[in-house]
Design a protein around this nucleic acid. Sequence first.
DNA 1: CCCACTTTGTGCGTGCTTTCACAAGCGCGT
DNA 2: ACGCGCTTGTGAAAGCACGCACAAAGTGGG
Lengths: 232, 232
Amino acid sequence: MTNRPPRPRGRGIPDATVARLPVYLRALQALQDRETPTVSSEALAAAAGVNSAKLRKDLSHLGSYGTRGVGYEVEYLVYQISRELGLTQDWSVAIAGIGNLGRALADYGGFGSRGFRIAALLDADPAVVGRTVAAVEVGHIDRLEEIVRSAGVSIGVIATPAASAQDVALRFVEAGVTSILNFAPVVLSVPEGVDVRKVDLSIELQILAFHAQRRADGDGRRPVGGTGLEPV
Amino acid sequence: MTNRPPRPRGRGIPDATVARLPVYLRALQALQDRETPTVSSEALAAAAGVNSAKLRKDLSHLGSYGTRGVGYEVEYLVYQISRELGLTQDWSVAIAGIGNLGRALADYGGFGSRGFRIAALLDADPAVVGRTVAAVEVGHIDRLEEIVRSAGVSIGVIATPAASAQDVALRFVEAGVTSILNFAPVVLSVPEGVDVRKVDLSIELQILAFHAQRRADGDGRRPVGGTGLEPV
DNA sequence: CCCACTTTGTGCGTGCTTTCACAAGCGCGT
DNA sequence: ACGCGCTTGTGAAAGCACGCACAAAGTGGG
Ligand SMILES: NC(=O)c1ccc[n+]([C@@H]2O[C@H](COP(=O)([O-])OP(=O)(O)OC[C@H]3O[C@@H](n4cnc5c(N)ncnc54)[C@H](O)[C@@H]3O)[C@@H](O)[C@H]2O)c1
Ligand SMILES: NC(=O)c1ccc[n+]([C@@H]2O[C@H](COP(=O)([O-])OP(=O)(O)OC[C@H]3O[C@@H](n4cnc5c(N)ncnc54)[C@H](O)[C@@H]3O)[C@@H](O)[C@H]2O)c1
């Protein structure tokens, strides 16, 4: 694991690549657990569920970290991807809305394992505020700014009801948070420079339903009471 | 066993469009609640956080449902999008793994509202099996096939630990499920023709971390947002 | 009827993404 | 030293997605 922080990488890794790096990282860590020293692009691509040419091109954006005829050294690549993703430093996360979902997120162990630390939990319900979840005491949402600033939070997670999400988002931003992960089913409006990603269960199900319906239409699969209406 | 079908997209609606239709649908339903009869592409695009030309092109894939000089009739468009997405029929969902996350999903109300009905819950833990969550009794995972078939499940949700996810996925497939939503942090391998989507919290956080690091890095400019609210 | 105005639907240029295909590089055995 | 087999890194091509800009199509007022 040689440290190598110069910058041969052409600045600007494509978004599509960035979205796949965590997948590669996870596959590599599984190999690490099995003490596999090196891996070929073919094998790693299979583990990550992508085309091997795509994997190589993705990795080439980070630098030339492979050895022709051999493959990639697992440990070295883990380090390089971690560094590129910013996982060599710790990130403090605040979760707003400690309901069913918020609690599941807070309790989730797979978080802290990789550089993300839950630094603050926030809720509006007096019955929840003051309780301790995952070793963190739930603070009142009214003190968001104070808590977020003092905990040095850089990533805000929104798990409140949809009606409160926009408000909470702006308060996160006012408190200096520029990265937000939103679970509420609303489109958030935030100032330029703030990065919002959303996780939307309902949308995922609807996309699955679309494809399922298409399969059912084409094939002779059993429909469950669809309409016979055709597009005009 | 392929990880991902190449792109069986017979000519039809582009994937990128399909992924946005649920967003439009949600915005339209909000308009419906406010009894707005018609909406322009400009206004709907703003509500959905997209470019209006993109919205019009997306909708044009469904047909010519707008009126020039006027806009789109909200109710009609809701129906057309719903039909295209397959929401005019009901979909039965099974959730495997009734832990923290699985319980949150089962309890989540925003599901049923859009044609998705929780038909079965499955777990391996004797302490969980037999309990009732969200008015559904948790069945034992060993009876997956029987339960899934008798409940007519068409969408399987995996919220088990990562180690069990692949196994559960294959059992879903054997029971006839061809649409799977996976919350476990693993790449699933399924036979061709089975549609898998994943929701991965950890990946989302890592992507946020990457962008946050980039903003903090060489880039010394402080994003002065002003008050310009940008839809995301 | 005509005209000014609004808004849709889409042709087209631009840039990003994926995939193929292969030369160049590396290790190993002889 | 040399050739062979394996694997990377990357040009080039094909495929998509996005968004501008505008003609076509509709509304409403006079
Ligand atoms: N549970 C799921 O599986 C699921 C799935 C998809 C999306 N979501 C979305 O995630 C969000 C949370 O879901 P949930 O099931 O945990 O709901 P929940 O009702 O169990 O929890 C919401 C929590 O937010 C708190 N809250 C309300 N207003 C607040 C405010 N202004 N500031 C801070 N906290 C506030 C409430 O006190 C409550 O504890 C919702 O927007 C929901 O639509 C949930
Ligand atoms: N909780 C989160 O916020 C969160 C976030 C991202 C991803 N995930 C992933 O979601 C999954 C579930 O997370 P969780 O927090 O609910 O975990 P959990 O441990 O609370 O729940 C897991 C449940 O699955 C059951 N189970 C175990 N093996 C099973 C099997 N073979 N068949 C059926 N059920 C089985 C267990 O009995 C338990 O009830 C995990 O893969 C986790 O990595 C969770």
